[in-house]
Design a binder for these strands. Structure first.
Length: 208
DNA sequence: CACATGATCGCCT
DNA sequence: GGCGATCATGTGG
């Protein structure tokens, strides 16, 4: 499988110049829904050859573990692929979908509680194409996130989550996308996006 | 804009 | 053996 591991050069940024401050472990260990809400407006960035690349998260989805039919950990399923979901909050869980796209999740709560937040869309720093990361697969492609990053530590490694200064985004809440197989869980209101951003994955569903 | 379809393969049953 | 936490492209209105 061919997968580019290097971030798009147009996503270069300077965390200090943007006034960003890193999330620490306790922030990730909170409830999955609060974390999913707080991740909208936060920044995800990675260090690559001494430079930072990333963007501002504008859309997320919460996946609630064993009780959530849409989650890979549904019913307590525990396989090598899903193992990072069972670890401590503040790690990445990355998987391949449809044979060609990666999806990145932020693991939440404590070890043994396999919940996570899917990063569905982000917007790059000024100058980056508006819709470069408008979708979970596109977000991973632009940042160079692949399966080998699954399990990466978001507190100590090359990937980080940052809080941004200033006002919090206005959130819209809807059911999650692409989980028609999930029974009743299909309707749960666990998708969150910044209603003032044009970079979310579901731009077609609303006119502005 | 709405909808349909193909691509492509690791993972789980 | 079947299918998916997606995306780009193509068709028609």
């Amino acid at each position: 499988m061919i997968a580019n591991r290097r971030p798009d050069s147009r996503l270069r940024l300077d965390p200090a110049a943007l006034g960003l401050s890193e999330w620490r472990r306790p922030a990730f260990r909170r409830g999955t829904v609060p974390v999913a809400r707080d991740l909208v407006g936060a920044w995800i960035a990675r260090r690559w050859r001494g430079r930072w690349y990333g963007g501002r998260i504008v859309e997320t989805e919460a996946y609630l573990g064993a009780r959530d039919r849409a989650a890979h950990s549904w019913g307590g399923r525990r396989t090598p692929r899903v193992e990072p979901m069972y670890g401590d909050g503040g790690h990445l869980y990355v998987f391949l979908v449809y044979g060609m796209h990666f999806c990145a999740n932020v693991v939440t709560r404590l070890a043994g509680q396999p919940e996570a937040v899917l990063l569905r869309a982000a917007e790059g720093p000024p100058g980056a194409p508006a819709r470069l990361m408008a979708g979970p697969g596109k977000l991973c492609a632009a940042l160079g996130i692949t399966a080998i990053d699954s399990g990466a530590d978001l507190v100590a490694g090359k990937f980080r989550i940052f809080r941004a200064p200033g006002k919090r985004p206005r959130l819209t809440v809807t059911p999650r996308i692409g989980i028609d197989y999930a029974g009743l869980a299909k309707e749960w209101p666990l998708r969150f996006y910044d209603r003032d951003s044009a970079a979310d994955s579901g731009y077609r569903e609303r006119k502005r």
